[in-house]
Design a protein around this nucleic acid. Structure first.
Lengths: 262, 262
DNA sequence: AAGTGGTCTAGACCACCAT
DNA sequence: TGGTGGTCTAGACCACTTA
């Protein structure tokens, strides 16, 4: 109440800007969130206040927020407010973790129980980006990177070997101790420690024969067919922030994908 | 203009119904589309007319249509009208076909060219559902089914072996001639010949060793790792209408999935 | 020019949450 | 009780399509 009118950091929309008003409003909201003025978990000003600050009606502002909610940038809670999206275990599970035990008959409710994997770190090393890593992360070959190998288990069985690669320059101060002691998911750590929010990802899957490292980590026979998923995780502006290769033992688990309710 | 007021088949919303108005309106629209009163490609009455028929404001009606557009049930075209969604090649390509040539470095614009696969039918047989097929299609084991095997090629190279299974009782009069002479995609045929619109699908992927049939059809060595995708295609009310196993030679192609812009 | 969907507004009322 | 987001309305005006 007593805060000065400008404290929210929102600018009135330029009168000459292009496109529909609600999209301009969306861009302004995105700008203020990316600027860090509101960090993950923070409450935004109420819709009425934002609308007035931007010089648009509440209905128009709501359309802008609608889109940012769909894109996982914001979260709305009735009666409480609008918040900058936070990475928690549930979100990781639903948006980014797609390995499930095989069902004998694919009846499959939407309501089946999902299990959060148990993660063990088997390697944490610094190195220099090779060509593929550099291309994926849009850095230069030879730039410093951190590579992390994890073993993921479901119901006590090792199912996935994850190799994560991030640019050291983007994740300054990234170290093994913080990584091992993280209270939640890796994406939550990116967010709390480095201010990087993973919004979405591109994945490409292929079948390969298990190599020596994977065979050892997952306990499968050398040369057995395994599923290899290459993921590039993206933040604002589709900037790549993590390159991850997940090698999955699909002997009794599947990689699940839902083709678009919406 | 001269048509009687009731010709659109829309009922005013019951005054006692549950949930928000726009969702009731959505259900009524869905009901009238599922009833066949408006078939694929048909133009719906204008938003003003529908709104009046249902007894809601245009804004509310638009919210209902918004959701049905997101779910691929309806399509809007400014200045022309609102239409019942049609299955064309483009939609198939973007919503259901996820195999792409491997890129050496995963830079990957959203704007890359996509190629429609060349399809050859290698088998069309009638049979009886096994347990897995019956569970997937929610029919009884032993019920009559049609099984179709196709070879899909990209740039002249055989990449995918598709095995489609559909319930014969649902696809009455489904025959090889119509199938082979279809002008567009299989899902388009389902729609035009059998009034079945595929809205979405569930997929589960795993790596396996190429079996004899796949090895022959795709021209890969027996036992080579291949990607097997099990798809259940769903229509209104999440009713399963097709069970499909795609076996993909991922030697130089990937199975691509985008994790949720929205 | 007439008809369609697309945007925008201003305001009412409801449902939920805190205090 | 007061503040938040959620729903709904009625109407204005814009952009696109067709005739």
């Amino acid at each position: 109440m007593a805060t000065p009118a400008s404290s929210h950091g929102l600018q009135p929309l330029a009168p000459s800007a292009a496109g529909p008003l609600f999209r301009q409003a969306k861009r302004e909201l995105q700008r203020v969130v990316e600027s860090g003025r509101y960090g993950p978990g923070d409450t935004l000003p109420s819709e009425g206040v934002i609308a007035q600050a931007l010089g648009v009606s509440v209905g128009t502002l709501r359309k802008a927020v609608d889109e940012l909610v769909h894109e996982h940038v914001l979260v709305r809670r009735q009666g409480k407010g609008t918040f900058v999206a936070l990475h928690n275990d549930d979100r990781f599970l639903f948006q980014f973790f797609h390995v499930e035990p095989r069902e004998e008959f694919p009846v499959a409710d939407e309501l089946r129980e999902r299990e959060y994997p148990h993660v063990e770190c088997v390697a944490f090393v610094r190195g220099r980006a090779d060509e593929a890593e550099a291309a994926a992360l849009r850095i230069k070959p030879g730039d410093p990177v951190v590579r992390i190998d994890n073993r993921l288990s479901l119901s006590g069985r090792a199912v996935v070997h994850d190799r994560l690669v991030v640019a050291a320059q983007v994740f300054k101060g990234f170290n093994e101790k913080r990584f091992l002691e993280r209270p939640s998911t890796v994406y939550n750590l990116y967010q709390t420690d480095h201010g990087i929010t993973v919004l979405r990802a591109r994945e490409r899957a292929r079948a390969t024969a298990a190599g020596r490292e994977t065979a050892r980590i997952l306990g499968v026979a050398l040369g057995r067919p395994v599923l290899e998923v290459h993921r590039v995780a993206l933040t604002f502006g589709d900037k790549p922030v993590e390159y991850r290769i997940s090698t999955i033992n699909t002997a009794s688990h599947d990689y699940v994908s839902l083709l678009s309710k919406r």
